[in-house]
Amino acid sequence: RPGVRVWGVETQGAQAMSEALKAGGPVPVALTSIVSTLSAPSVSRLTYDHVAELVTEVLVVPDRDAVRGSLDLADHAKVWAEPAAGCLLPAARQVLERVGEGARLGLVVCGGNATTADMMAWTDHFSLR
């Protein structure tokens, strides 16, 4: 489907791909995000090459927005998802600003690496109650 565009999303402090794209290849990054499942200390050359060729842009959102996205998925979609999936909602809002409200978006929601205690702690940390 040549008309399909793909965006990636990372959280601030887990920006291995966006930093690699800026640098023109894989670079080491310091991981500080609560979303530890989203990034590695660097991306592989193979992954970088695929993303550089096929992905429109890699968006970066704050941890707070990723946690808010997880809470929104739970409240509105009745889906329990960790912040690695929660970051999709704020990223999707950014995409809609770029391409227009009439666009049809598909989100790949996965991951279950957050416990109730994790979510409660992050909700308190970011004052999201």
Rank of each mutant, 00 (worst) to 15 (best):
A74T: 05
E10R: 02
L128D: 10
R93F: 03
R68H: 09
S39M: 01
P28A: 10
S39V: 01
H125M: 14
T47I: 05
S39T: 01
T56L: 10
P41N: 02
S39D: 03
K22G: 04
V35E: 07
E10A: 02
G112Y: 11
Q15M: 07
V99K: 04
A85I: 04
G100V: 04
G102H: 13
A77H: 08
L128R: 12
V27P: 10
V27F: 12
S70W: 02
K78N: 04
P2T: 09
R68M: 05
T116V: 15
A16R: 01
W7K: 02
S127Q: 15
M120T: 12
R129C: 05
L54N: 14
H76W: 08
T123S: 09
S18W: 01
T56P: 04
A92F: 06
E101D: 12
A91I: 04
G24T: 07
A14R: 05
G86N: 06
E82C: 00
V35T: 15
R129S: 12
D63M: 14
P28F: 04
H125Q: 15
L107I: 03
L38P: 05
V4H: 13
E19D: 12
G24A: 02
A81D: 00
M119Q: 07
T47R: 02
P41D: 03
K78I: 03
C110Y: 11
A91K: 04
V67I: 13
T37V: 09
A40L: 10
G112R: 14
P83A: 01
L38W: 04
A74K: 07
L128I: 09
L31E: 08
E10V: 08
A66D: 13
L31T: 05
L107H: 06
Q12Y: 10
P83H: 00
S39P: 00
S33I: 02
L107R: 04
A84G: 14
R68I: 00
T47M: 03
Q12T: 14
P62W: 08
A30P: 08
D49N: 06
V99S: 07
R68T: 06
C87K: 08
R45M: 03
T116F: 14
F126Y: 15
S39H: 02
A91V: 09
S36K: 15
A117N: 07
V6I: 13
R1A: 14
D72R: 06
D65S: 14
R1C: 11
V27G: 10
L89F: 02
C87I: 11
T115G: 11
L71T: 05
L46V: 12
R64I: 04
V58P: 00
G102E: 14
M17T: 01
G25D: 11
V79A: 01
V55L: 07
E82P: 00
G111L: 08
V79M: 07
V58T: 03
A66F: 11
G111Q: 09
V6S: 03
A66Y: 09
V108F: 13
T47S: 08
A66S: 14
